[in-house]
Computed example of a mutant assay.
Amino acid sequence: MTEVLSQPFTLKFTTCQRPVRHTPDFLALTRGTALLIDVRPADLIKPDDALKFAAAQRAARAAGWHYAVVAGWRPQPWVALEMLSARRRAMSDPLGLLPELLELTAEQPRRLGELVAATSWPTLARAYLLHLLWSRRLTLDLALPLGDESWIYLPRRG
């Protein structure tokens, strides 16, 4: 990404019924191309917006750019954040799960189910692992739903 422009221009066009104006939200410039972006929560998109988005997409295509409407996050991150936030409060570790979990993930990234099964207290390790994810001692890829198949990593430092 070389530059991001907020509300870079206003499109003016005429439909069968009336003249219309639309200002896209962002233009992200990259090496060799650009991405025109409109941002609107999905539940607020009206039929008139769909017309404006179609015009913005057509203008972007004519300029050789890409176009996207951002209408919200995928559902997986929301579900995962809700689940992790339940473990946001400080937790004691009388069974020593922290060193076990950190050591197991330091060797290599592991799937969540495999990781907790490799500990001495799998049921308790699952709850503690969620706390470690929330507190950023461990990390995961939110592109997939949070579950036993999720990859768990040590976070990058620096």
Rank of each mutant, 00 (worst) to 15 (best):
W134K: 07
G113A: 06
L133W: 02
H66N: 10
L11S: 11
A28N: 09
L44W: 08
L97C: 01
V4S: 03
L81V: 06
L35A: 14
R156S: 10
A62P: 14
R87Q: 07
W134R: 09
G158D: 06
R87V: 05
S85W: 15
Q7N: 12
M1L: 13
W65Y: 07
E114S: 12
L112A: 07
P109C: 08
V69F: 12
G64K: 14
P41S: 08
D48Q: 12
E82H: 12
P75V: 09
V116I: 05
L81F: 13
R74N: 11
L36I: 06
V116N: 01
P122G: 09
S150V: 01
I152T: 04
D48I: 10
F13D: 00
V39D: 07
A71N: 13
V4P: 00
A118W: 09
V39C: 12
L144G: 06
Q57Y: 08
R110E: 05
T105Y: 03
R111D: 02
A86M: 08
L112V: 01
L29S: 12
A117E: 13
C16A: 14
D43Y: 05
D49A: 00
A143V: 12
D48P: 03
M91Q: 08
L132K: 02
L5T: 10
A106K: 06
L130K: 00
R40S: 11
F9K: 11
A59M: 11
F26A: 03
G64Q: 06
R111T: 00
L144T: 13
R126Y: 04
L129F: 06
D38K: 07
I37N: 05
I152K: 02
G147M: 01
D48S: 09
Q76Y: 14
A56M: 04
G113L: 06
L132Y: 02
V79Y: 10
P122F: 03
L44T: 03
L27F: 07
C16G: 14
L115I: 05
A68Y: 05
L97Y: 00
A59T: 13
L129R: 01
E3W: 07
A63K: 09
A90S: 07
E3S: 09
D43P: 00
L124F: 04
R40P: 02
R156D: 10
A63V: 07
A28K: 12
F13W: 10
L146R: 00
R18M: 10
T10C: 14
P77E: 05
P99H: 07
L112N: 01
G158E: 01
L112P: 02
T139R: 05
L142N: 01
R18C: 15
A106T: 04
A55L: 04
T14W: 15
M83D: 11
Y67M: 01
R89N: 06
Q17I: 06
D148N: 06
L104Y: 03
R126T: 02
H131G: 01
